[in-house]
Design a protein around this nucleic acid. Structure first.
Length: 455
DNA sequence: TTTTGAGTTGTTCGA
DNA sequence: GTCGAACAACTCAAA
């Protein structure tokens, strides 16, 4: 046991329970200094977006309060991280820095430098499986088989009852001073929808593991109902650990979804260029068709396709979109509009409270068909068919598009065919499905490598 | 080492 | 209305 303090640097692990870095520091040091450092410039080009910053503000505040209940504090500093940590070490005599690993390329590079500079202990706290413990795979089914052959995740650890601090605490800036909250308050809808912090995460997990999970298989695809776990932002910020979720939600289908999160991190680690570039090289010459006006129609939920527009409005209002709708909205942008998937990824990055580089990259590349788990080229979602299948009564689209509330079920997903026409305030489709589908198939056909005739 | 076949959150067409 | 086939190409597992 070291009598000098250890620093626990909180990043995307804003919890006290099942926190490997915190546990290790407590085992080795008689006192611990919890630290949060705001250094977005070190994560470029993927610094936290607007919705993420809102969440981070509240989650850090919740963590600070949780620490204070255990006799500790959260010391908040601005970056650069190297300077912040060097200062804290000089001020406190700390002999080591503990953190839980992250897997984004810019963060890996930054952390590698810090590891050279300071006595550092990096822990496995955010994933069930470290990416290098499975050989590089590009197909989910193979990955899923591979990780199922591994030992089951260890049981999660409890939160420490007390966290001893140093005799004299170093200075801290107030979280408010970091400027994470928007200047004009656009976050009202997000505030009503979410409770950032470890306690909020636990409530959501208990709700889901208690009652929700029984209907997961049938309910997860119905955007009008609360059939999904809604754990994504809590998992992203590490307010709940993957092991805790795995343990509490013992449903094969749901665990498969957790495995998708693992797979996304596996891919990001092994193919670090994929946030910006297609994994499949042939897609780098795909005939994209950038169009600012249509991109804006998509972001504003004014494409004329109710399911797409409802999803985009749900995203803008609550910082989140149902998974089924994400697939349809993403497919619409890249296949119907032929707008580069990176544009969609950037919009999601800024607006999602669960914006996660690994998941966002996998999702967009999967939708565009240029990534892992080769989406067949012919998988072009029909936004009307998807809506009729998964929102048969129009509950979801009417919730987010009030203009459609007077339209009968029969036409609610294709209001341009309604007897009265498109209702006032709503828009006609910006592209016609059949024509857009044919155009996308033609564009995809340009990627085909002509077979050389056998000679 | 080479070959074969399954898999891949969908849509459309025609019987 | 319902159902099966067809729609490439590629990765990966198993033979």
């Amino acid at each position: 046991m070291c009598s000098q303090p250890g620093i626990v640097w909180f990043r995307l692990d804003l919890r006290l329970s099942d926190n490997a870095a915190l546990q290790q520091a407590l085992e080795r040091h008689s006192s611990v200094i919890p630290v949060f450092i705001w250094a977005p410039e070190e994560e470029l080009p993927w610094a936290p977006g607007g919705a993420s910053r809102w969440w981070l503000h509240h989650s850090a505040a919740a963590l600070a309060a949780d620490l204070e209940r255990r006799g500790s504090r959260l010391i908040v500093r601005r970056g650069p991280t190297e300077r912040a940590l060097a200062g804290l070490i000089a001020e406190t005599g700390a002999t080591a820095v503990y953190w839980n690993r992250r897997y984004e390329p810019a963060v890996i590079a930054r952390d590698a430098v810090l590891k050279e500079r300071f006595p550092a202990v990096s822990c496995a706290g955010n994933l069930l499986v470290e990416p290098w413990n499975v050989r590089t795979l590009r197909v989910f089914a193979a990955y899923w088989r591979a990780i199922q052959a591994l030992p089951a995740p260890a049981p999660p650890g409890d939160a420490p009852a007390r966290i001893p601090g140093p005799e004299r605490w170093p200075d801290s800036v107030r979280i408010e001073e970091l400027g994470l909250l928007p200047k004009t308050d656009w976050a009202g809808g997000i505030r009503e929808s979410w409770s950032p912090g470890e306690a909020g995460a636990r409530r959501e997990l208990e709700r889901f593991a208690g009652a929700g999970i029984a209907d997961y298989a049938s309910g997860r695809d119905v955007p009008g109902e609360r059939g999904t776990s809604r754990l994504s932002p809590h998992l992203h910020f590490g307010e709940v650990s993957a092991r805790q979720v795995w343990r509490a939600a013992a449903d094969e289908g749901f665990r498969r979804e957790l495995a998708w999160r693992e797979f996304a991190h596996h891919l990001l680690y092994h193919f670090p260029e994929t946030p910006d570039e297609a994994l499949r090289p042939e897609f780098r010459r795909f005939p994209w068709r950038m169009n600012e006006r249509e991109l804006r129609a998509w972001t504003q939920g004014r494409t004329g396709y109710p399911l797409v527009d409802a999803g985009m409005r749900e995203l803008w209002h609550t910082g989140w979109m149902h998974n089924r709708v994400r697939m349809v909205a993403a497919s619409f942008l890249v296949k119907h509009l032929l707008i580069p998937w990176q544009e969609g990824a950037a919009w999601f990055w800024d607006t999602l409270v669960d914006a996660d580089l690994a998941n966002n990259t996998l999702g967009w590349q999967w939708s565009a068909g240029c990534g892992a788990d080769a989406a067949p080229y012919f998988r072009i979602f029909n936004p009307v068919l998807q809506a009729q299948k998964f929102d048969a009564r129009g509950v979801y689209v009417r919730r987010w598009i009030p203009e459609l509330r007077g339209v009968a079920d029969e036409w609610v997903h294709e209001p341009w065919r309604a007897p009265g026409g498109v209702p006032a305030g709503y828009v006609r489709p910006i592209v016609e499905h059949r024509a857009a589908r044919d155009r996308a198939l033609k564009a995809l056909a340009t990627l085909r490598v002509p077979r050389l005739p056998a000679s």
